[in-house]
Design a protein around this nucleic acid. Sequence first.
DNA 1: GCTCAATTGAAACGACCGTTTGAATTTACG
DNA 2: CGTAAATTCAAACGGTCGTTTCAATTGAGC
Lengths: 236, 236
Amino acid sequence: MPRNGNSSQDRVIDPTDTKSKILDAAEELFMEHGFEATSLRLITTAAGVNLAAVNYHFGSKEELFQAVLTRRLDPMNQDRMQLLSAYESASNGKPLTCEKILAAMFIPALKLARDHQQGGKNFLRLLGRAYADPAPFIREFLSSQYREMIARFRSAFSFALPHIPREELSWRLHFVMGALSYTLAGADMLKIISQIHPEEATNDELLLKRLAPFLAAGLRSPSPAEDGGHHLFQET
Amino acid sequence: MPRNGNSSQDRVIDPTDTKSKILDAAEELFMEHGFEATSLRLITTAAGVNLAAVNYHFGSKEELFQAVLTRRLDPMNQDRMQLLSAYESASNGKPLTCEKILAAMFIPALKLARDHQQGGKNFLRLLGRAYADPAPFIREFLSSQYREMIARFRSAFSFALPHIPREELSWRLHFVMGALSYTLAGADMLKIISQIHPEEATNDELLLKRLAPFLAAGLRSPSPAEDGGHHLFQET
DNA sequence: GCTCAATTGAAACGACCGTTTGAATTTACG
DNA sequence: CGTAAATTCAAACGGTCGTTTCAATTGAGC
């Protein structure tokens, strides 16, 4: 009895085996109902497998959730870092533009959103929910999954924007991640905020072509320490 | 038997009555565990009231959740619109700056975060979770709560930035809402993204003094239609 | 073909869920 | 004070939950 294991595919991935069927069904159902509200019975019924298969292959519901996240999140963040390295190698030691660094963040996310016709979009919504979940096992998992990639991109931005203090840059990177994840995950909020035509709202590439310039302008803006001392939050 | 009702306090709010005790406990527990994972038994035990009191005073668990949201969200959005109107009245028909409009959005949220020492922060985190929840009853509720406020602020930005096409502005307003809600709600994500000192991360006012200039720069940036045709998402 | 481990299967475990019921209690008021 | 409405209470309703157990089945290597 393996009881878990095979954490980073020791064998080839077979989309018809029990583990993959569970992961596919869990991804869609976790996205739709959240972690706590999705029962293992719902997942195993949708996957066409026995209820006990989840505990046999993944150990527990929490470990299944982590497996669902890591299956796509880990490759996506690896892609981001590889793409960033490729851009840097091609620049001959010159700093990259903010747009270029943002492209290294966005393109792998876009690829994920497009690749698996429904799975990709489902996963990004699931990720958006996980960001807002305070459950310790989720937060610690996301932290470990993101730490390396975030450090890598902060260095790149620091090199591209040497006049921005490192701490200010950490904040701006936080804002970038917020707008990106919110935009990729919360398509439904668009219907609240605007009367944007639905057929356009589904075009993620166009969306990010609008988001990247928006964020690049914010990243390049003067550091608050050198803006002449505006007093924004003074009433009247 | 009233069976619900009293939707916008017909009587004075008494922080020691059963309804308020339930709302306070529910706000904290919904924030911590999410809607589905928070049981009415947990809420009523924490509030020190009988289990049946929720169904008696609010009708159902879903209606209790909406009552928790509307108690603070509705006043906050009213404050935002009143503040925006006050700024506009003081400007003698001249367009407001982006920073000023953003201040009208941020200040009421900041007031909420500070007012109720723990309740305020709890509520904003709860709101962040609700944004990412696809449950129809949550999405429809948020949509109805935000529609008027969003329309009001889109008009203000449209007046302040007449050269930005209205559709582009809708997208940028979406990005603003995303970065703001993500920032206000997801304080824990900061620990993932940066090594920002915790004692500073809790200072929301400083946080928004960094966020507002960042977003204002993005809002003012040239419209993509007139940026000369960059090709950001061309690989290589 | 036999053996033994890997996997699947059906059933049950105790626990907790949202809601309802109807009686007991408190409150408001003529 | 008496009475009718509002509120609180304990208990139970039918269900669903994650997990475990153990027998049945499968599959690979000798």
